[in-house]
Design a protein around this nucleic acid. Structure first.
Lengths: 377, 377
DNA sequence: TGCACTTTGGCAACAGCGTTGCGAAAGTAG
DNA sequence: CTACTTTCGCAACGCTGTTGCCAAAGTGCA
């Protein structure tokens, strides 16, 4: 039926919804802060309702007064700001050969971080040991642990987000398979890690985490964008209407195996003419311009299908020659926009900022998002 | 910023949200009806809350008692059902050479319909005249008009939805251009029609209306699906998470000009190797199997990108040889699913039911959707 | 036939949400 | 110093879903 399992709203739901909304606006306002009346305007709530909501948030320690604005002829507005230290989250980027963990505060700012060499093929016990130790050290030094040395002792810790390559089930937190490492097939990473660490754990694809991180930072505008990652492989993370689009089976963003050349060269996925094989082939032959053009054609397909607002490029290969890719992809999109007479012109193409820590920071946002009303089912 | 213009929730919002939710479940239950306790289970609300909500709906005439279930050892449940005659909407399908208008009730059932020959190139005055007359006759005979002959006199009429080909702005109701008819460029169809008819008007692309219609009927499952229309052109309507995805500029679903053959044959859009030119070319050469294969490759790209639950095929060309297309597209998707070891197997491919009236009925749902909580921004 | 039990669903009191009315606080302008 | 503007909290309010309770309407067994 068309009306899927949507939930009814009661008063508790209203409260948390509005609180999350206000908290999100406080975060977006950053160090400048934001006044109650501005919050009222943006939410559509009355100023009095905002006062009550912010009073609750101040009691809970999430918000604080921070100076006042210049007067415009009357009593000056009091400025409110987020208290970043009121909450923390750990984000872990589990890659094929290294592990990168960050501890961020409510603002998304990195408080502490760690790096470790790692071999994903070394088996679950070894990998989980390295991961758990890294997280415990990170949290222990920055926030302090409980008397028993447990992570749960860190009161402000919301949980741990783990991002890794390869298909997986975001909802159940189970890996399907990690390309090249069949021993991870069907591994219930979320539950195992949750039991071991004693705090909430969320698992997601690396490209989704990167896209989420970019979304929170406000890159890609307020609406929809695609993050295209060109490194050892070619993948994408999609943000539609402000939230990460994963699809029913967390399979969305399968960008690299989009076929753009019927009966083209064989790809390792078994298909022919995938963007990945064409693009990486051009990179391998030392033809970045051709790689960018091919990438641009695939990006244009994506833009046409979803009508997104921006395309962000990332990954080692892009970082090696950013201008070539931005221009190459941009040219294809511009040509298409010109031909179709699209209102507003072509979709902008940019290099995703954030570099090496992007995925880990985005993984941490998987937890923070719940506070700010981006809870993902 | 990441927190786009989301709205705060007050008690009025809660009421209409829950009322819409219940109304949607009543509609989905159809003639069988549904009991209060089932409604409570599905919404997560308490039985008492459901009683209050349904009491309001009964007062307003939208719902009614309809018999009772067999007892399971106690007082038998009272069954509630939607009162279809409590609301109506007109849906108009404006095609290049004909106009098709339907009047539907809350259930989506067609109460009356009209067809008229039409030339979209005959100018706005002529076309709007034919359209307005068709709508007024339709509503007048089935519902009756006001004393002054105005549509607003039909108390249960929620408004008119208009679906037509070509790029347009769904939010503002303005046409960008209708392929082959430059005189419509920038025409503010929504506002002009609203002023002339005196009731609410919503404008959308034909493929979006078709997808919406299918979504309401429950085809394509509860989640996400794509409707691919193969007729004089090749387009798509996307339903993601239960609602039509249009993108910021109502440009989403630009499926036909997805490039699947780099530097392939020139398409009339100016690009090379679009699915449309390849697919229609094969149709023209009398090679439906090849057309289906090409369509399947493009569909597989879409499925991979969005991880949708189903693919529905429609349009005159598909209707001419349904099995060929279902099998051809299905084979490509199945092969890909097999190679990637997707959990749950391949995405199902079906022919969209509903035939000629699908777009007009979907257009009517643009208005009904508001009642059932599918208000689209 | 009668009694016990189960299940449904309405009435009444309630807690908690945002809203409204109003006034104190804190500035500017003359 | 006075008049005015603007911010923002207190108190009363209306309305939401929730809880506690009980009447209604069945079944099943003695």
């Amino acid at each position: 039926m068309s009306t899927g399992g949507r939930a009814g709203a009661n008063l508790g739901a209203v409260r948390s919804h509005n609180a999350a909304l206000v908290l999100g606006l406080l975060r977006d306002a950053g160090a400048e802060g934001i006044s109650r009346l501005e919050l009222a305007e943006r939410t559509g709530l009355t100023p009095q309702a905002v006062s009550k909501i912010t009073a609750r948030l101040r009691e809970q320690g999430f918000a604080a007064q921070a100076g006042r604005r210049a007067s415009t002829g009357g009593k000056p507005r009091t400025v409110l700001r987020l208290v970043p230290e009121a909450g923390h989250a750990v984000g872990v980027h589990l890659d094929r050969d290294e592990l990168r963990a960050v501890l961020v505060d409510l603002d998304g700012a990195v408080v502490a971080q760690r790096r470790a060499e790692l071999d994903l093929g070394a088996g679950a016990t070894t990998v989980l040991g390295v991961l758990a130790r890294a997280v415990e050290e990170l949290v222990g030094q920055a926030l302090g642990l409980g008397d028993d040395g447990a992570l749960a002792g860190a009161a402000t810790l919301l949980g741990v987000g783990v991002a890794l390559p390869g298909p997986l089930d975001h909802v159940r937190g189970v890996l399907h398979r990690v390309t090249g490492f069949p021993e991870w097939d069907g591994f219930a990473l979320r539950d195992v890690l949750q039991a071991r660490l004693g705090v909430a754990v969320v698992v997601d694809k690396d490209t989704n985490a990167a896209a989420l991180g970019l979304s929170v930072r406000g890159e890609g505008g307020s609406g929809s964008f695609a993050y295209l990652h060109l490194g050892t492989g070619l993948g994408a993370g999609l943000v539609i209407g402000g939230s990460v689009h994963r699809g029913a089976r967390t399979g969305a963003g399968e960008f690299g195996h989009q076929v753009i050349q019927l009966d083209g060269p064989l790809c390792e996925c078994g298909n022919r003419g995938c963007v990945e094989v064409l693009c990486l082939g051009a990179v391998g032959r030392g033809e970045p311009a051709e790689a960018a053009r091919v990438l641009g054609v695939a990006a244009a397909n994506l833009v046409g299908l979803l009508d997104i607002d921006a395309v962000l490029l990332g990954g080692r290969t892009v970082a090696g020659a950013p201008q070539v890719y931005v221009r190459g992809v941009g040219d294809v999109l511009a040509a298409r926009a010109r031909r179709e007479g699209m209102p507003g012109g072509a979709v902008p193409v940019r290099v995703a900022q954030g570099g090496e820590g992007l995925v880990a920071e985005g993984a941490a946002q998987l937890l923070l998002g719940r506070l700010f009303g981006r809870g993902d089912a």
